[in-house]
Amino acid sequence: MASQGTKRSYEQMETDGERQNATEIRASVGKMIDGIGRFYIQMCTELKLSDYEGRLIQNSLTIERMVLSAFDERRNKYLEEHPSAGKDPKKTGGPIYKRVDRKWMRELVLYDKEEIRRIWRQANNGDDATAGLTHMMIWHSNLNDTTYQRTRALVRTGMDPRMCSLMQGSTLPRRSGAAGAAVKGVGTMVMELIRMIKRGINDRNFWRGENGRKTRSAYERMCNILKGKFQTAAQRAMMDQVRESRNPGNAEIEDLIFLARSALILRGSVAHKSCLPACVYGPAVASGYDFEKEGYSLVGIDPFKLLQNSQVYSLIRPNENPAHKSQLVWMACNSAAFEDLRVLSFIRGTKVSPRGKLSTRGVQIASNENMDAMESSTLELRSRYWAIRTRSGGNTNQQRASAGQISVQPAFSVQRNLPFDKPTIMAAFTGNTEGRTSDMRAEIIRMMEGAKPEEMSFQGRGVFELSDERAANPIVPSFDMSNEGSYFFGDNAEEYDN
């Protein structure tokens, strides 16, 4: 993207840094990872977990959730003011799984939030270390993106479920800051804005008074975040219109849905970061690795190297396929839920299948599930090659597409044709070009129609051997075009429920 120079890199967003050079960025990201790792080690000690239990991804998720809940100030305040039966607002906890007599047992633990905050700050040299908290939120978000298709949420806001490739980060909490905003897809931002506008339509006082002023500035800020994701002048001009509207209503909703559809071809720039579970960072720190000293990046080879040398386990339900569970977590670790499966298959070195073909449910185990038949197995999170994460949407291309997802959002900077089903997408653009945004709409449609099938995206960008740390010898991959490109292809993934 041309304006790259004016933006802070995501590592800076990730670490609240002012302008830093590459070495400083690597050190501050490393410091953040160190903090998460030290916190995780301490929690495993508190909970008396064995090494194996500490490497269980379900335990990692519970521990991450506990610290996120302990620092969720708004919710904590709300819980104190609106006490609900049987919930102690000062405590947080969740299921911890232990191996007892050759069987997995679930144990519900409860801790004072104050105590968890103390352990977290102690692991982070006394700081609140917001960057580390956001990092864990993005890992949870990436896992949700890989596990669930947001059909219901899309339909509720009037969008087409086939636009799911635009929904990265749709389950990120509001408090995820600049680093969170960077990884949100165009569809996620559109959905947040539509929800806001709908509230304004239904509630006369939404934009009024002292609160209304705050609401208005939040609305304009979200519009600017979305505008910054678009790469064409016409899309940005249309966002200006939406932002400046005196009284946002149905016309703005129409414009936003139009823009979301246009992003299936004229893709937005959305950041991709490899955020790993805390149970990967903990053992690495415990083994003596100093992330701050060595430096770390979320968008280069580092996460690949770390996963190459990590042992992570997962509980497996009786009829689940461990290899499929591994694929789910591998995609989440690489922030690749909406990437082209052919690119992923090449990088991973084994075939990556669409969601609907995987015999696996989510990673988390519900409290009512029976533990008797639970097994555990090693997650295979290694890769054959590594590639640089991208934040450009890439230019655009036609490809055989599917009944489910009709476009992709690249996660890796790797040369390819970008699949999208042009006739299906263009069919949504018939007729409606009147109104105050008509010239911009016409211009956007013209650009979409001009998108050429034979153009290559990320020209000359390749993948790298894991021994090639400096990215000196790019390998331009070859793809098996007979395979499906979309992950949520004609899909039956479970729906995400809060």
Rank of each mutant, 00 (worst) to 15 (best):
Q168W: 01
G490L: 11
G177N: 02
N432C: 14
Q122M: 11
A471R: 01
E254K: 14
E454D: 07
A427W: 02
G249Q: 09
R213H: 01
L341A: 10
D491V: 12
G393Y: 03
N432V: 10
A2P: 00
R19L: 00
I25W: 02
F346H: 06
F338T: 12
D128F: 14
A218P: 04
A178W: 02
Q42Y: 08
E495C: 03
V242S: 07
L341F: 07
F458Q: 05
W120Y: 15
T437C: 11
M32K: 04
L264Y: 07
A234Q: 08
Q308I: 15
Q149A: 04
R342G: 15
P248M: 04
S377N: 14
L68P: 10
A387H: 02
R470K: 14
R246N: 13
N142T: 04
M43I: 11
V363C: 15
F489D: 11
A131L: 02
I347N: 08
S69F: 04
D480R: 13
I201C: 13
G394A: 04
Q4M: 07
K48Q: 15
T424Y: 03
I116Y: 01
Y385L: 05
G450E: 00
E292V: 06
Q20M: 03
A493E: 02
Q327E: 10
R102K: 13
T437H: 06
Y97M: 01
P322I: 07
P322K: 01
R162V: 04
R65Q: 09
S262A: 15
D491G: 10
Y10N: 09
E80N: 13
E484V: 15
I265D: 02
R436P: 07
D128A: 14
G393N: 05
D290N: 14
D101I: 11
S402L: 06
W104D: 11
S392P: 05
Q122P: 09
D112R: 12
K273W: 02
A182K: 01
T45R: 05
K31S: 08
Q459G: 15
I63G: 01
L154R: 05
A178P: 12
R400D: 06
T130W: 10
A323I: 13
P89N: 05
Y313R: 08
G187D: 10
S170D: 12
M137C: 04
F338V: 09
R216Y: 09
S413H: 04
A22F: 05
F488P: 03
S50R: 09
S457K: 00
D302E: 02
D480G: 06
R246W: 07
Q405Y: 01
L56Y: 06
F489I: 02
I445F: 07
R55G: 01
I265E: 00
G86A: 13
G490N: 06
D145W: 06
M374P: 01
P303D: 06
G169I: 11
D497Q: 00
D255H: 02
M32Y: 09
E465K: 01
G490E: 06
T146Q: 08
V476T: 08
L358D: 05
K7C: 05
Q231F: 02
I25M: 15
A2T: 00
H324M: 03
A451I: 11
Y496I: 11
R99E: 09
I257H: 01
D240F: 02
M32C: 03
S269P: 14
G435A: 07
Q459W: 12
M238L: 15
L193N: 14
K227P: 05
V67N: 15
T171W: 01
A131S: 14
D51Q: 14
M189G: 11
A471K: 01
A411M: 02
E114C: 06
R121M: 11
M163I: 15
R195M: 05
S310T: 13
N395A: 14
N492Q: 08
G362W: 09
R243N: 03
S353A: 12
A131P: 15
K198V: 08
I253M: 14
R195W: 10
E80V: 12
L307Q: 15
A284M: 01
G393M: 03
L466V: 05
I406S: 13
A427M: 11
Y289W: 07
V190F: 01
F488M: 07
K325R: 08
R150M: 08
M331I: 13
R436E: 11
V270I: 13
I194C: 05
Q405V: 00
C279D: 05
R117K: 09
V67C: 10
T433I: 15
I96W: 07
A427T: 15
L143E: 02
S326H: 11
K31I: 10
P477Q: 01
S28C: 11
E107I: 03
A387C: 08
Y385M: 15
E484S: 03
R8L: 11
D497C: 10
S310I: 12
P161T: 06
D468E: 08
L344W: 03
E18V: 15
M105F: 14
E24V: 13
M374C: 15
L56T: 14
D480T: 10
L143W: 12
A337R: 13
G180I: 06
S245A: 14
I33S: 07
Q409E: 02
D372V: 03
A471C: 05
Y78W: 10
L266T: 13
G485Y: 15
S383Y: 04
E455M: 08
A323T: 08
C279N: 13
E114L: 02
W104R: 09
L266E: 08
R175P: 07
S274K: 02
Q149G: 05
A323E: 01
A373Y: 04
Q459N: 13
D290E: 14
H82P: 00
F71S: 10
K103P: 02
D421Q: 12
W207I: 02
S297L: 10
V29C: 08
A373W: 10
T396D: 01
F258G: 11
I316G: 03
Y148S: 08
H324Q: 15
N211C: 12
G94Q: 09
M43H: 13
A260F: 07
H135E: 08
S413R: 12
E495H: 05
H82I: 04
G404K: 09
A493P: 01
R246A: 03
R361C: 02
R8F: 00
N76G: 03
Y111N: 06
W207Y: 13
V363S: 08
D480M: 05
S141K: 06
S287L: 01
D439N: 12
L341N: 10
F488S: 04
Q20G: 00
L379H: 05
M238D: 06
S28T: 06
G356N: 10
N432G: 03
M238A: 15
L166Y: 01
E443Q: 14
H324A: 08
F489A: 00
K293H: 15
G249D: 10
G450W: 05
F346T: 09
L315T: 11
R175M: 08
A286I: 03
Y289E: 01
E53R: 10
S478T: 02
M163G: 04
Q58I: 05
G404R: 04
V463S: 06
M448W: 04
Q364W: 05
A260L: 03
N417P: 12
S9Y: 10
R195C: 11
G209E: 07
G86E: 02
M447I: 15
E495S: 13
T232Q: 10
D34R: 06
K227L: 09
S402K: 14
R389L: 03
A401I: 00
A493C: 02
A471F: 00
R261H: 07
D88A: 00
I201R: 00
E14K: 15
E484W: 07
R74F: 07
L154M: 08
K305Y: 11
K325E: 09
K87W: 01
G86V: 00
A234N: 10
S28D: 00
E252A: 10
D128V: 13
D112K: 04
K103R: 11
I41N: 13
F71G: 08
N492H: 07
S359Q: 15
M159C: 09
T437I: 06
A337W: 08
S326A: 05
A260W: 10
R162A: 10
Q409A: 15
L381I: 06
L226D: 10
S353G: 09
Q364V: 12
L133P: 05
A323G: 10
P173S: 12
M66V: 09
F489W: 02
S486W: 02
E192M: 11
S457G: 15
W120H: 09
E294Q: 15
V280I: 15
M163Y: 04
E375K: 08
F338Y: 04
V242K: 02
S326K: 07
M331D: 02
N124E: 11
P277E: 03
A85R: 13
L166V: 03
D112L: 13
E294A: 14
A251K: 06
E14S: 02
A123Q: 06
L381S: 06
E380W: 14
A428Y: 06
F488C: 14
D128N: 14
G169M: 03
L193D: 01
S28M: 06
D340I: 02
E11D: 13
R199Y: 13
E339N: 06
G212W: 06
T6H: 07
T15D: 02
L47R: 14
L226S: 14
P423W: 01
N124V: 03
N309H: 09
